[in-house]
Design a protein around this nucleic acid. Structure first.
Length: 483
RNA sequence: GGCGCGUUGGAGAAGCGGCUUAACUCACCAGCCUUUCACGCUGGCAUUCACGGGUUCGAAUCCCGUACGCGUCACCA
C-alpha cells in the first residue's frame, strides 16, 4: 500500500462519540501501519449545529486517546484548509463545472412543493424522491422564480438505469441501482455544499487513498461515486465498518448510557483501555490475547479482520479491560491517576505533604487491585479516612457478639496504643500477636476487627486500612462499634 | 415501502466446504489460593451455528426463500 492517506472527518455538532472515536482509531491504525498520514478534517457545513466548542472537544478527545493527526485544522498541512467552511470557494468551482457540463442544475422548488410531491408519492405507494421537476427549466421560468425571490439549490442529475458498484474492503461488492436515487442537492440555497458533495471534493483534493467510516455511510456511497465519475476522478478505496450497537441491539444512543469519549474519561477510564476496547469493537485479533498497546495494535490491525456484523458495546468488558490496565500501572503511574480523583472529591489538598503521600500509598496498596475504574476508588475511600463508622447491616452485630470478640478487641486496642508507629509491617505483626495471644485464628479474629473498624464484611487488607486511618481514628471507630 | 447490511452460547467473537466431538474473551458456576472482598490459578458452561428448502460423498461455511434486527432514502453529516 503506497501513499496511504486516511482521514477522520467528524462534524462538530457535539462531543466526540464513541463510534466516531472508533472510526478515528481504525483510520489511525491503518495510517501508522502503512506509514501513511492520518488527516483530521472538520465537516462543519451544518452551520446551525456546528460549534467551536464541539470542535475543541473532538480535538481534546482524540488527543486524550493518543490519536494524533498529521494534518488538520489546527496544524495545517499541504492540502488545507481542513475546515470545510474555509473551503467554500473550492466547492463553488466544482459546482460550476458540473453545471457547465449539464450534470447539475438549479432547482427552485420550495419546501412546500417538495413536501407535496413526497406526500403524493407516498400516497401512490411509491418511494419518496425528487422527480426532477426543475431538470429542464426554460430561461423564462428561471427568471420568473428569481423574480419571486426564490433561492435555488443545485441538484446533481442522477443518470438513469445505471448500476453503481461499491467495492468495499469489509463488505465486498455492493451494487446499487441509480434509479433508486433521486436527483439530490449538492449545494444548499445558502451557498454551502451538502455532505455528499463536499466529502468527495475534499477526499479527492486531499489525496485520500482509503475512506474508512461507519456503515451508515454505505448507502450514501453511490451518490458520492456518481460525483467522482462526473468529475472524471478515480475513487478511493472504501471500507465501511459496522455500527456500534447498545445491549438491546439498537444503535448506540444516550439511553444506553455514556456515548461520548469525555464521559468515559470522567468516569475514570484510562485512554489505553478505551483504545484497546474500541479496537475490539468489530475487529478480531488473530491470537487469543485481547490486551494490546497502541504499538501492538498498529502491528496487528487489519481491515481483513474487521467484521461485517454490528458490534455490541459491552460495558462489562470495558470495565474488565480498564481493570487490567489499572492493575498494570506502575506505582508512580497509579499515584498520578489516583491523586486528582482524590483531590477533586476533597480527600486531598492541592498541596501534598509527606504524610499525604504516605496515605496515598496505603490507598494504592489497598485498592489498585480492586477497582475497575478510577472513580470506584471513591466508593471505598471511607475506609481509609475519618473516625466515622456505621454497620453496613444489622447482621454484622451477630459477628460482634461472638464470645471471643471482647478479648480480641481489648488485646488489639492495647497493641495499638502501645505500638510505636502504625505501618503495614507493624500492623501485620500486631495482628499476628493478637491471634496468638487470644488463641483465636482466621475469621474469628480478623472478621470482628474488620467489622469493628470499617463496619463492613469486605474490603482492602487491614494492614492497608489501619495505618491509613491512624491510631486515633481506629480507636474512635472501635469505640463506636463495640464500645 | 424501495434499496442496502446483518443473524454462531447469557454477552462479545473465531470460523472462508472435510484438520470442529464449534477457538478465544467477558459474564456466570464450582474448586484452589487468601484474615474478607478483589487479584491469580484450575475446571464447568452451544450434540450445535435464526428458520425452511437446495447444491455436495460431506455445509456454521455455497445457493434460494422466510422471519427478525439494523441502516439509508433531508437544503444532517
Amino acid at each position: 500500500m503506497e501513499n496511504c492517506r486516511v482521514r477522520f472527518a467528524p462534524s462538530p455538532t457535539g462531543p466526540l462519540h464513541i463510534g466516531g472515536a472508533r472510526s478515528a482509531l481504525f483510520n489511525y491504525l491503518i495510517a501508522k501501519r502503512f506509514k501513511g498520514q492520518f488527516i483530521l478534517r472538520i465537516e462543519d457545513t451544518d452551520v446551525e449545529r456546528s460549534s467551536r466548542e464541539s470542535e475543541d472537544n473532538i480535538f481534546d478527545s482524540l488527543r486524550w486517546l493518543g490519536l494524533d493527526w498529521d494534518e488538520g485544522p489546527d496544524i495545517g498541512g499541504p492540502y488545507g484548509p481542513y475546515r470545510q467552511m474555509e473551503r467554500l470557494a473550492i466547492y463553488k468551482k466544482y459546482i460550476q463545472e458540473l453545471i457547465d457540463k449539464g450534470l447539475a442544475y438549479y432547482c427552485y422548488c420550495t419546501e412546500e412543493e417538495l413536501e407535496e410531491e413526497r406526500q403524493e408519492l407516498i400516497a401512490k405507494g411509491e418511494p419518496p424522491r425528487y422527480l426532477g421537476k426543475c431538470r429542464e427549466l426554460s430561461p423564462e421560468q428561471k427568471e420568473q422564480f428569481i423574480q419571486e425571490g426564490r433561492k435555488p439549490v443545485v441538484r446533481f442529475r442522477v443518470p438513469g438505469n445505471q448500476e453503481i458498484v461499491v467495492n468495499d474492503l469489509v463488505r465486498g461488492k455492493v451494487v446499487f441501482e441509480s434509479n433508486g436515487i433521486g436527483d439530490y442537492v449538492i449545494l444548499k440555497s445558502d451557498g454551502i455544499p451538502t455532505y455528499n458533495f463536499a466529502v468527495v471534493i475534499d477526499d479527492y483534493l486531499m489525496k485520500i487513498s482509503h475512506v474508512i467510516r461507519a456503515e451508515e455511510h454505505l448507502s450514501n456511497t453511490p451518490r458520492q461515486i456518481l460525483i467522482y465519475e462526473a468529475l472524471g476522478w478515480e475513487t478511493p478505496t472504501f471500507a465501511h465498518v459496522s455500527l456500534i450497537l447498545g445491549k438491546d441491539k439498537s444503535k448506540m444512543s444516550k439511553r444506553h448510557g455514556a456515548t461520548s469519549v469525555v464521559q468515559y474519561k470522567e468516569q475514570g477510564y484510562l485512554p489505553e483501555a478505551v483504545v484497546n476496547f474500541l479496537a475490539l469493537l468489530g475487529w478480531a485479533p488473530e491470537g487469543e490475547e485481547e490486551i494490546f498497546t497502541m504499538e501492538e495494535l498498529i502491528e496487528q490491525f487489519s481491515l481483513e479482520r474487521v467484521s461485517k456484523r454490528p458490534a455490541v458495546f459491552d460495558i462489562d468488558k470495558l470495565k474488565w479491560i480498564n481493570g487490567v490496565y489499572i492493575r498494570g500501572c506502575s506505582n508512580e503511574e497509579i499515584r498520578d491517576l489516583f491523586i486528582p480523583v482524590l483531590q477533586e472529591a476533597g480527600h486531598l489538598p492541592e498541596k501534598l505533604s509527606d504524610r499525604d503521600y504516605q496515605w496515598i500509598q496505603l490507598v494504592i496498596n489497598g485498592l489498585q487491585e480492586k477497582v475497575h475504574t478510577l472513580k470506584e476508588v471513591l466508593e471505598h475511600i471511607d475506609m481509609f479516612v475519618g473516625d466515622q463508622v456505621e454497620l453496613e447491616s444489622e447482621d454484622l452485630k451477630k459477628v460482634l457478639e461472638e464470645e471471643q470478640v471482647p478479648l480480641v478487641i481489648e488485646t488489639l486496642k492495647e497493641k495499638i496504643k502501645t505500638v510505636e508507629e502504625l505501618t503495614p509491617e507493624t500492623v501485620k505483626t500486631m495482628l499476628k500477636e493478637v491471634s496468638k495471644e487470644t488463641k483465636q485464628k482466621g475469621k474469628k479474629v480478623f472478621m470482628p476487627i474488620r467489622i469493628a473498624i470499617t463496619g463492613k464484611m469486605h474490603g482492602p487488607e487491614l494492614h492497608s486500612i489501619i495505618p491509613a486511618l491512624g491510631k486515633e481514628n481506629v480507636l474512635k471507630r472501635i469505640e463506636k462499634t463495640v464500645g
